[in-house]
Amino acid sequence: MLKDKFIPVAIDQWYTRRQQDPEGDFYRKIAGQGPRNDFNKTTQGFYIADPAGTLIAYNNNRGPERIRKLMEEALSQYTSPNCSPIEEPTIDTKFDPQLPSGAVVVRCGAKVKGGYEQAENEWRAIFQRSVARDNLWILENELEAMARGEFPESLAKRIARFHLVDNTRGQPPAWEAAEIRSLTISINGEKVSGRIHLETEDQSRGFIASLEGEISIQAGRLKKFDVIVEGDFWGTGRFTLEPPKGKFPLVVAFRLPDVPDKTDSIPPAGTRGWLDGYLDPDR
């Protein structure tokens, strides 16, 4: 039904509700008719709207049957309005982080491998089995460094601060620069290895892990980036509640996409609101 009867669009509303451009205006027009119309707060949910910006339905329920019913009801009352397409949209560059010239996108995925108590319901079990997904940006000068056999400090810190997180149950806190207790990553031929110790000052959250993998750069182009970071994680963040108790095994994997797709254009979570800090993790 979603494929055939709707125009499906997926957005990170953190950006869209802030954008001072036609896309942001259109989103705020729709969301402003719903219950989450304070644009200083999250407006997340499922919206069904017409191209004039009239909200037809909204829900934030996670039950598939509830959403199906919402869609069926919206379709039953839908009439296409007489309006014009949004023309020549300008883009609010403040909320449109772009992949720097010469940089490449590497996918990353994270999973908690164990340690959970028996889930009390299916939704909790889903959280416990989940795989989180993000994109890592590797800059041109960092590729050049790796081609010379050096693992660049900026890339090591970007990986550590923004990607070695437990994002399997929601949006996690990134690590502060001072929370990198130790970080060594080196290249030997195509093999890469390292040790990482991240920990908050109050010791309530941390990750002690090893890094292993293979990296290949041929004629200046990244051909392989199979890297795994695995170790003991502990603690949680405001939006990643109910982790396993104590220390638990977390694995974060990185790989160059075999087949690129449109999700590769989604900026890394770590760029949100602080692109400069993501690109230069010493800041």
Partner: peptide
């Protein structure tokens, strides 16, 4: 067709 928006914190 109507627009179906999946809007989240985080993409």
């Amino acid at each position: 067709k109507p627009i179906f928006i999946w809007s989240m914190d985080g993409h």
